[in-house]
């Protein structure tokens, strides 16, 4: 079997440098830098208050950092888009075309008052889809892809279980083929059995779609299964960063060692 050549000249999809954000005297995010390449999944792990969510919100443009830049290079040419210098309209457009954001609580990412189909159809409609039949067919297809029965297409998400809501949120975000998805504890509020199913689905979708993703989680098992790379955060700083299994199996930083050794074995 021929190996694909390694493209040394390839450019990152996202280039983050020197990102910092303080809330008063507390530095929630301090001098964080990394590159993310197309198809790569970066896990950001750390305990509550370590700055993971602040980092995610700075990356996605939801928060403006005090220092540093986030460059998004959609075409691989030129310097890329400076995410925080973009007008808000452009950033919103980005967030409903090439980017996506998956919230920990599906209620934050779904419209609870409209049907599953309308939820999935929103992104296509927001960027100009105007054929009801096509929008509905696409929504039905995505409902199936996230393993929800087709007869739930016209039901509101309030009637769904937590796991189904989270899968619906995925469909809503992935429907128009984003290239980069931000996920904040995507399996956080779910029962363990439901979590396993979602993880499997997520992994499958990420692989099939070739998505790049930044996934914030405090759960190292989730990080191991989903992420290619890990960044360990403590007090706003990235204390260790590397290949996922390397960071988890051969942690070097004292904090990472503590984190890994603190995981309960079932």
């Amino acid at each position: 079997m021929n190996a694909a050549p390694l493209m040394e000249a390839e450019r990152p999809l996202l280039a983050v440098s020197g990102l910092g954000k303080a809330f008063g005297a507390r530095r929630a995010c301090d001098d964080v830098s990394f590159d993310l390449y197309a198809g790569e999944v970066l896990g950001v792990v750390g305990e509550s208050g370590s700055g993971k969510t602040t980092l995610l919100r700075c990356l996605s443009g939801d928060l403006t950092p005090d220092t540093g830049t986030v460059l998004y290079g959609p075409n691989g040419n030129g310097p890329g888009l400076d995410v925080h210098a973009l007008p808000e309209g452009r950033r919103r457009l980005l967030m409903r075309t090439e980017w996506g954001y998956v919230h920990q609580n599906p209620r934050d990412g779904l419209r609870m008052g409209v049907s599953a189909g309308a939820n999935i159809g929103e992104r296509p409609m927001a960027v100009g889809a105007r054929h009801y039949g096509h929008i509905r067919a696409q929504a039905a297809d995505w409902l199936a892809r996230v393993e929800i029965e087709n007869d739930r297409l016209d039901d509101r998400p309030v009637t769904f279980s937590g796991g189904m809501q989270q899968r619906l949120q995925l469909a809503r975000v992935l429907v128009n083929g984003p290239r980069l998805v931000f996920m904040d504890e995507p399996t956080g509020g779910l029962d363990v059995s439901v979590q396993a199913r979602l993880l499997d689905l997520l992994r499958d979708l990420v692989t099939r779609l070739g998505l790049a993703a930044v996934i914030v989680t405090h759960d190292l098992a989730v990080a191991r299964l989903l992420a290619h790379r890990l960044m360990v955060m403590k007090d706003g700083r990235a204390v260790e960063h590397g290949l996922t299994d390397q960071v988890l199996d051969d942690p070097h930083h004292p904090y990472t060692q503590l984190l890994v050794s603190s995981v309960l074995q079932a």
Binding site: N2, A3, A4, P5, H228, L243
Partner: peptide, 23 residues
């Protein structure tokens, strides 16, 4: 790795993963 030599110690994660996938 195919026509390349990859140093598994210093290669970036995506190259290590490519080596594991293919080689």
């Amino acid at each position: 790795h195919g026509g390349d030599w990859v140093d598994m110690v210093t290669a970036p994660p995506r190259h290590v993963l490519a080596v594991r996938r293919h080689t």
